[in-house]
Simulated scan of single mutants.
Amino acid sequence: MEWLEIKDNKDIEKLLYIFGGFHDSCLKELYMWTESYVDDNLSMSPVPDTNVRILFQRQYSNPSAIELLFKGVAQFHIVPSPENYDSIIYDATLILHKGLFYWANDYNWEPENSMLTETSWLSAKSLKWRDVSSWMGKENRYGIISDL
């Protein structure tokens, strides 16, 4: 499972084509972490980088699941589906704007209107993706949920 870097609009168009514009997909899992930590001496090592991995699955093959890796996250806005609504993504947008990569679960979403919407979206300095079609199904890939 090799990571493929998204560098420009050509790479974006290729990914959107390969994954069908995220049509009939779902955000299966999301994992966020920072580079900050507290060491054994209880000293803080604050590093401002935030990263996010997202697993998407869809109702088509080749690929049926992909993972996106956003590094250097600048904004993070995820809105859960309201009660009694499905979580199907019908279309999404992926754009490069002012040096940041933006993903949103609405094809018509634009960064200028980011605060005026209930759309899930995030932006980051860099973006990679990989085919993880073997990760289909209910099983969690980023961690085990137990005793909840």
Rank of each mutant, 00 (worst) to 15 (best):
M1Q: 04
E2G: 06
W3V: 03
W3C: 02
W3K: 02
W3F: 02
W3D: 04
E5C: 09
I6L: 03
K7D: 07
D8E: 04
D8I: 01
K10R: 14
K10M: 05
E13R: 12
K14M: 05
L16G: 07
Y17E: 15
Y17N: 14
I18D: 14
I18P: 04
I18R: 13
F22T: 01
F22Y: 04
H23M: 08
K28M: 06
K28V: 05
E29H: 11
Y31T: 11
Y37Q: 01
D39M: 00
L42V: 03
S43N: 08
P46T: 01
P48E: 00
D49H: 00
N51C: 14
L55S: 11
L55D: 14
F56G: 04
Q57F: 02
Q59T: 12
Y60V: 13
S61L: 14
N62L: 15
N62A: 14
P63G: 11
I66V: 08
K71L: 11
G72Y: 09
F76T: 04
H77A: 12
P80N: 08
S81W: 09
P82D: 09
E83L: 13
E83N: 06
N84S: 13
Y85G: 06
S87A: 12
S87V: 13
D91W: 03
D91L: 00
T93K: 02
L96P: 03
H97N: 12
L100W: 06
Y102K: 06
A104E: 13
A104H: 13
N105R: 03
N105V: 02
D106N: 08
N108Q: 14
E110Q: 15
P111E: 13
S114I: 11
T117H: 04
E118T: 09
L122V: 12
S123I: 07
K128M: 05
R130L: 03
V132D: 10
S133C: 04
G137C: 09
N140Q: 05
R141Y: 06
Y142K: 10
Y142T: 05
G143H: 05
I145Q: 04
D147V: 06
